[in-house]
Design a protein around this nucleic acid. Structure first.
Lengths: 188, 188
DNA sequence: CCTTTGATGTCAGTGACTGACATCGGTCCG
DNA sequence: CGGACCGATGTCAGTCACTGACATCAAAGG
């Protein structure tokens, strides 16, 4: 028998999401999160660098998925299409977890600090995407612009997906937004 | 004779930029900023809601400029061209202040928290732009996508402008980036 | 059996930020 | 003129996010 309950990190994430949902992000102290997870405040900060990051554990995985998908796209694929493939792959990841994603998003939508953190995660995604495109031979500023445009499409499709009741396909919303971007960019 | 030195807000902004430049954002305490401005910490927080915001005083003005320029664009102008006009107007605002802008940007580039704040300012700009476009009759998701794409162009042109020695025209970099976005979006 | 290791706890800080209240030139009104 | 009021600032005490230093102790390994 081990000395401690297993999965401390997961318990902290769970407790944080619950408390942020119940009483709001600002009204929750780290000590309370730790207590609900059966740990101390100090231990919380051993797993997460700050109070916000506990909501963004999945960001690293998502970024890897983006990078891998772009890397593995056909050499002949245009940059924007390689990025589109990555967005589709990401959509598939989210598809099954609608309820949890939505709860998390409601917490973020209610607090500006959390929105800042979300934005920097998107920015990091964009940078990673841009780097990957450059490794495929895309120049600047094309790589950065393609990455930013792709993330914009993702953000807007994601918003729309979360807002509605869950019947619309995320991947479909992404394709729609991408088509709209192409139309809009050419001055339609 | 008035009871206090005038322009407390301006003195705080100046002191903050100096100190953030000299020893870095994290190594500077709000008490130090206030002291250099001849005020107390408490007064700092009466002018700025937090330690970061003191660097972003101009954001409101910039947003007004964006919104006004888009509002006044010819009715016949395509959404992306109305946004392009706003970017040009913004470029003109920055053009003369290269040194100060660059110093500020160096501070922001050195600290993740400040980057988060900058990102949420850009996001706010994007939302304002999107709202303005919708008021011009542009639908969704076209309005949001046009706004996001426009901000992406601005961000990337801005980066390039700040990185180089100041001889390249900001407005020119914006036009270049916008052209590149159009090319990239269509799958070039 | 003893040593080492790793996850956790304890404790004492620092600094951002807030609420409540005090201060005191300037201004305005009677 | 004089007192009431106002608004920018100061003072003070408190909360909470976050950090560094050190202690604890079951488990793993020799």
């Amino acid at each position: 028998m081990s000395r401690w309950e297993p999965n401390a990190r997961g318990r902290l994430e769970q407790a944080a999401l619950e408390l942020y949902s119940e009483r709001g992000y600002e009204q929750t102290t780290v000590a309370e999160i730790a207590k609900r997870a059966g740990l101390t405040e100090r231990t919380f900060f051993r797993y997460f660098p700050d109070k916000r990051e506990v909501l963004f554990a999945g960001a690293g995985t998502l970024q890897e998925l983006f990078v891998d998908t772009v890397t593995e796209a056909p050499v002949a694929a245009a940059p924007i299409d390689a990025v589109a493939a990555a967005l589709d792959a990401a959509a598939a990841q989210f598809q099954g977890r609608f309820d949890r994603v939505r709860r998390r998003q409601a917490v973020i939508a209610a607090n500006a600090e959390l929105q800042e953190r979300e934005l920097i995660k998107f920015a990091s995604l964009s940078t990673a995407l841009s780097d990957t495109l450059r490794r495929r031979g895309v120049g600047e500023p094309a790589a950065s612009l393609t990455a930013e445009a792709g993330i914009a499409v993702f953000k807007i499709a994601f918003e729309r997906w979360v807002e509605q009741s869950g019947d619309q396909d995320f991947a479909h919303l992404i394709r729609e937004s991408l088509a709209e971007l192409k139309a809009v960019a050419t001055g339609a």
